[in-house]
């Protein structure tokens, strides 16, 4: 059965839909967590520390966090590998372009591939910047509030982050609705509702995430 799924275009889209929904669920939680930054360093740093102690005493220190990380890495890899293989196939299936060109499909649809690559690169930078601190001069482990303020005090930090979050909004807008079709839960009756949920999710995520750099830039968070 796993073989059937992985070898089929419909199956690979199912892998993309499920992994995408897992990441989407994570993003909603992540976005809500981020908003604690507006309640001061104490609350934000406390929240960040709590992420390591979730599930105690059943789970050991950081076990839950690592479990989430493993699931997310698996989801990212499954999503990206499926997308790469399907894209290769799609390009091979339509090798010659039409001479008469027309603008086709919506903006969100056309930007799925490039948007996905931008998001992939962003995730790498984001982890090196705020989790490991590798590309973050003056990174202080255990002081996430200060680290976030540092990042968004640089022009490039803001540009990278805001561009990525706009790409995320477009990606989620087409991706959520698309996942519903792939999993066969879309219908004519539900279509309007699904499109509305996709738009609202995309808007809330983008706005919620961008609120943090805007907060730092405007001095609300310092």
């Amino acid at each position: 059965m796993a073989r059937t799924v992985w070898d089929s275009t419909v199956g690979k889209k199912t892998v993309m839909a499920v992994s995408g929904l897992i990441m989407l669920l994570y993003l909603v939680v992540h976005m809500i967590g981020n908003l604690k930054i507006f309640f001061g360093a104490g609350e934000f740093d406390h929240y960040a520390h709590w992420l390591r102690t979730v599930g105690e005493p059943f789970m050991h220190y950081e076990w839950t966090l690592w479990l989430v990380r493993v699931v997310l890495v698996a989801a990212v890899v499954a999503h990206a590998v499926s997308a790469y293989q399907l894209s290769r196939r799609d390009i091979r299936a339509r090798p010659s372009k039409y001479v008469h060109k027309k603008p086709r499909a919506s903006y969100a649809t056309r930007t799925m591939r490039w948007g996905g690559i931008i998001l992939g690169l962003f995730i790498v930078w984001h982890i090196l910047d705020l989790t490991t601190g590798t590309v973050h001069p003056g990174f202080r482990p255990g002081h996430p509030y200060q680290n976030v303020v540092d990042t968004f005090s640089t022009w490039y930090g803001n540009v990278i982050y805001i561009v990525a979050m706009l790409a995320l909004g477009l990606h989620v807008r087409h991706g959520f609705w698309s996942a519903a079709q792939t999993l066969g839960v879309g219908s004519r009756r539900r279509d309007r509702a699904l499109k509305t949920v996709a738009d609202v999710l995309a808007l809330l995520l983008t706005a919620g995430f961008i609120a943090v750099p805007v907060g730092v830039m405007t001095g609300v968070v310092s």
């Binding site: 275009t9 419909v10 690979k12 889209k13 399907l86 196939r89 799609d90 091979r92 299936a93 339509r94 086709r104 499909a105 919506s106 649809t109 799925m112 087409h174 609705w177 698309s178 519903a180 079709q181 792939t182 066969g184 839960v185 879309g186 219908s187 004519r188 279509d191």
Partner: peptide, 25 residues
């Protein structure tokens, strides 16, 4: 050797018989 679906919706727009995109769903 046909490609996969990215739900661009171009097929249903072009279909002379009006087969809906939901058919793929």
């Amino acid at each position: 050797g046909f490609g996969g679906c990215t739900l661009a919706g171009e097929c249903a727009t072009a279909c002379p018989k009006g087969i809906p995109l939901m058919s793929i769903t």
